[in-house]
Amino acid sequence: MFIAFAVFVPEIFTGAEVDPADVSQAIGVTSWLSWVVNLLIVEWWLHRRSTSDRRRGDEIGQPSSNRIRTRGNPPETESVSAALVKPESSKSLRVPT
């Protein structure tokens, strides 16, 4: 707020006559800047973190994404799950083969 006043209404510090419209505009600009700048800083911080994480992943030879890529092929987990399903119990006697 003090920065906006210094830029848009410097008269407020010198004691000269102040236009109320200028004060309103300075407060409006401050209202925007107070959260837009904060949000931009956070976005930069998050972008920087994700970039450094990706770089670290490349350095140790891991894929950057947390999902394993199958290069267009369907994942084989379904066939594995089907193979690991417990067979239904049978009451018939087992015959050794």
């Binding site: 707020m1 920065i3 800047l33 959260w35 956070v42």
Partner: peptide, 19 residues
Amino acid sequence: RQWMLRSFALCFSIVAFRV
């Protein structure tokens, strides 16, 4: 974490408003 960081940034805007 990402959404909450954005939320905190907006929450702290009132502190930034005084600068």
